[in-house]
Amino acid sequence: EALGLLMLVAEHPSLGVTELARRAGLTKARAFRLLSTLEHRGLLAREAHAAVYKLGYNALLVGNAAREQIELIKLVAPHLVALGEACGENVIVRVRDGLESVCVARHESSQSVRVHTEVGNRRPLHVGASGKLLLAFAADDVVDAVLARALERFTSTTIVEPDQLREELAAIRAAGYAVSLGERDAEAV
């Protein structure tokens, strides 16, 4: 429960105890006790003037330790820089986590116009080139689970029809790559 609250604050900073308790499915008293413990450990900080929570300084220790301990991140780091410099664009690495993709590493380009993705950013697998690529090569039970859910529409080009997504996944498998034209953000083409 405490880690669930920590993740909620990481994904939605500046929420108060009432809203955090509601989103976590906890009583307000239980949420307050857990938040207080996380605050005492320095993982969360409460802004006294607004009574809302944000990550504390000790969360940096956890994040930096993860960056150093996750082998994939260490392995791809030099390649991200080389690829980013060669193409002059942002380069990200996303992995599948359940029915979502999560950004685990990135290289930021110096272009004045670019799409910005934070490490830790999550999105459904049916959205964007990287998510669709991961989905196209995932096990059949993962594809079936994604297609069994309502596919959220982010823009007018987001694929939300299961049959259309199946066709797109087949095309991605055949081509070996995926393309996204404004599926998550209409301005990212």
Rank of each mutant, 00 (worst) to 15 (best):
R123A: 06
I172S: 08
F32H: 15
E85N: 07
E11N: 03
V91G: 02
R184Q: 13
L83T: 12
L5I: 10
V189P: 03
V81Q: 01
T155H: 05
A170M: 08
Q164M: 04
F137V: 07
V189H: 05
F32S: 13
V52A: 05
V93G: 08
L6P: 07
E100P: 05
R153F: 02
T18N: 03
D185Y: 10
A174M: 04
E152W: 04
E152V: 11
Q111L: 04
E71G: 11
L151N: 15
A82Q: 11
T37A: 02
E47D: 13
A145Q: 06
V119P: 01
T157G: 02
L133G: 12
V93P: 08
G42H: 07
V142I: 09
V179S: 05
E187R: 11
T157Q: 14
L83D: 08
S156W: 05
E47G: 02
E167A: 12
K74N: 11
C87K: 00
E161H: 10
G63K: 04
A170W: 06
L35F: 10
H40K: 10
T27Y: 03
R33T: 06
A188H: 09
A148K: 09
R30N: 12
V115C: 00
E68S: 07
Q164E: 14
V62M: 04
V52S: 12
G25T: 13
P13D: 12
T117F: 01
V179Q: 05
A10W: 10
H49V: 05
A24R: 10
E85M: 05
V115L: 00
L5A: 11
V127Y: 04
A129D: 06
T155M: 04
N121C: 06
E89S: 00
R23K: 04
S14H: 15
E39K: 07
L34E: 15
L20N: 03
S109M: 03
L8P: 00
V146Y: 11
L125A: 09
L8S: 13
A139E: 12
V81Y: 00
P162L: 14
L38M: 06
L169C: 07
N121P: 04
E71R: 13
L55A: 13
Q164F: 12
S110Y: 07
E85Y: 03
S130F: 01
A21F: 01
K74E: 12
D163T: 10
I73K: 08
H107A: 01
